[in-house]
Write a protein that binds this DNA or RNA. Structure first.
Lengths: 135, 135
DNA sequence: AGTGCTGGTCTCCTTTTGAGACCACCACAG
DNA sequence: CTGTGGTGGTCTCAAAAGGAGACCAGCACT
């Protein structure tokens, strides 16, 4: 469990940061990235960046997520401080999820990546087709 | 397998793109994100952004990756067109991996996210501690 | 009494990931 | 001419993550 990325002041330091021996928990960047990298996390952050949503709304918004993974992913996002969970004492009680300041701040670079993906998905798809044809 | 993100011209369209019913293969953004999101992909892209590396060098650079996952991740990165694999006819043959233009272009937004993680890992760690204490 | 909506948890099975043994090839040292 | 080590892998098996769907309590409305 090595490979540390931390204190990246310049591209040249990536090497040093990655080669610095330390266990996984001691590599904050990879630790944080792991939280962002989940299968559903980016999707939910993108959704909540738009506006707060309730549990059931999110489920309908992302129909191919299982209820179990929605619960679990939202819990992880709360734990990492990206999402706030607010319970309204209605009957039946409803729960609203919203982005925290930290979540909104993380949204910006994430959104850059998503935009890149949107602009370049065709190139990636072409690369795959070419690779599969040649292989 | 729904939840489509495509043609994101504005934040307001995130909702529409996500709710547009379509299966996973038809959502280019999530498809591309899946390739970037792998456990090791970002790490290897960061490494190769520095300079080309050989297989064994990468293995030593990231000591906690298994040889199997290194092979597999590099293959996926090749397939998606981020990485170029060049075989040198030495004895024994050596293989050099380098970023393609597409890979370098993808590196920029990825690097933004990594920088964010580096700057905010403490806030995330604090959020986790607070969450775990209260729960 | 039945139906539906709220936000979940629990169980089971499949897919993905990880650890480590194994492989062929060749150079060089003894 | 036999180790020993370095090249870049593949194969097998166990562990972890992810997905499908049943189940739950509570209340409103019919």
């Amino acid at each position: 469990m090595d490979g540390k990325i931390v204190n990246l002041k310049s591209k040249l330091e990536i090497y040093k940061a990655m080669t610095a021996g330390a266990n996984f928990a001691d590599c904050p960047v990879r630790d944080v990235m792991r939280g962002i990298n989940g299968k559903w996390s980016p999707l939910l952050v993108m959704a909540l960046a738009e506006k707060p949503y309730r549990f059931g709304e999110l489920r309908r918004l992302v129909p191919d997520i299982s209820q179990r993974m929605l619960t679990q992913t939202l819990l992880e996002l709360q734990r990492d401080g990206y999402v706030h969970r607010k319970v309204f004492p209605t009957k039946p009680p409803s729960v609203e999820y919203s982005l925290t300041d930290l979540g909104r701040s993380m949204f910006h670079p994430l959104y850059q990546l998503v935009q890149w993906a949107e602009l370049n998905h065709e190139a990636v798809r072409d690369a795959r087709t070419a690779f599969d044809a040649q292989a």
